[in-house]
Design a binder for these strands. Structure first.
Lengths: 167, 167
DNA sequence: ATAAACTTTCAATAAGTATTGAAAGTTCCG
DNA sequence: CGGAACTTTCAATACTTATTGAAAGTTTAT
């Protein structure tokens, strides 16, 4: 397989994976491109490589910066901005977990807390409702703890302990 | 808070969460509705409760059946089909993990294996590329093992060991 | 102050997804 | 068989999200 094909294919696949991780396709593709690049790239180069417009490139670069998974760097004597990605896949996973915890888990925890306030009126419905909410809350709390620990954990330790456990 | 409001809100929130788990909004809402229902519901009732069309209800019910997170049941002397959900949230999580493993992790593993076949031509690019692919593969393999163990694990054991570990 | 080099914005538009509802299909029962 | 009760399909449509590109904004050097 030729390098160029392989690169294309990886970028494509990473785009899909990223999408299911909550990034959008282009965002993930830019990230993939920067991952495999040997040097920081400019917006121009990214546009070129991925065949996307300036606006699109700019927006998604900004989103990646906000997620803290790529960095803006400047080169002395050059006015252009260069970007490079976090190459440590572990750091990336932790970052994604962190974002998703904030975006997804926190809202549902809030709602679960709220709806648990429903007044029990003696009907079967509210009884069942309370029961389900309680279970969901229990699960969500545990997931939250786990995710939080993951976000704060250190790679080697994590895999060593967890994989040992699960084998 | 009134039961009706609380129900609405939970269904709404569950819809959003489900969406970020890879279901679609309606799918997750139907699931939520069945979760809190004290009895199995018909397509008709689901349409009614969620204000959705017959086609929409039918398609999403089918999808949920395919994911094996709701069941079709029949009531003696009644021709209608009734649906009830898996109420065990743990079983649900395992099921979702299983589906996502198949849909997301497997494809990327395949691609990583493929692109690793790229011929090293001595350039910096291919060297870096191979390095990144190797790291990604390592990460993906570990995630796969972990996810697989999760899918096959038993609730109490899982939370006991894992949470103990992370506290 | 001017202009070149570069970045950001955003209204228009394209692309992708979800939803509807009526028609076609199926099953069951007399 | 005939038709009532129910389920499935799918083309049309509505809704959501991503993308474009030109114009506006900013920064830097002279």
């Amino acid at each position: 397989m030729k390098y160029k094909e392989a690169k294309e294919e990886l970028i494509q696949a990473w785009g899909n994976l990223g999408y299911s991780w909550g990034l959008n396709k282009t965002m993930a593709q830019i990230h993939a491109l920067l991952m495999i690049s040997t040097k920081p790239l400019t917006t121009e180069e990214i546009m070129e490589e991925l065949n996307i417009s300036r606006g699109n490139a700019n927006m998604n670069i900004r989103a990646l910066l906000e997620w803290h998974i790529i960095y803006r760097i400047s080169v002395a004597g050059d006015r252009k901005e260069y970007f490079k990605s976090e190459k440590d896949i572990w750091a990336l996973a932790r970052q994604v977990a962190k974002e998703r915890r904030k975006r997804e888990l926190e809202p549902i925890l809030k709602v679960l807390k709220e709806v648990n306030e429903v007044a029990p009126d003696g009907t079967e419905e509210t009884k069942e409702f309370k029961k389900v909410v309680k279970e969901l809350k229990n699960f969500a709390d545990k997931s939250d703890t786990l995710l939080d620990s993951f976000v704060k954990s250190e790679e080697n330790w994590f895999w060593n302990t967890v994989l040992k456990l699960f084998k």
